[in-house]
């Protein structure tokens, strides 16, 4: 179940990556980062978290032994 939720998180990020609502927004976050760039940088950071959860909860556990059979 946790593995499926982790994959769900990745899928949500992939969908949210298309941020059409900021397409024409020139607001500066912290006074210097255009909001479109700030949002996408946050997507990158959250992608790191999402992949951590996938690696933690959806790891292909038997692949090591299968590879070692050789």
């Amino acid at each position: 179940m946790a593995g499926k939720l982790a994959w769900g998180f990745v899928l949500v990020l992939a969908v949210l990556h298309y941020d059409f609502w900021y397409w024409d927004d020139r607001t500066l976050v912290f006074g210097f980062v255009p909001i479109g760039l700030f949002y996408q940088a946050m997507i990158s950071l959250l992608a790191g978290l999402a992949w951590f959860l996938v690696v933690r909860f959806a790891w292909p556990s038997k692949i090591e032994e299968w590879a070692a059979e050789g």
Binding site: I43, I63, E64
Partner: peptide, 27 residues
């Protein structure tokens, strides 16, 4: 917009490929 076009997409897709294809091909 170039960041969203090229970089954040790659952050999701590259790791997806490493996980789904890279590990399998290593094995």
């Amino acid at each position: 917009g170039v960041y969203g076009l090229m970089a954040s997409t790659s952050g999701i897709v590259h790791s997806l490929v490493f996980f789904l294809v890279g590990i399998k091909l290593w094995a």
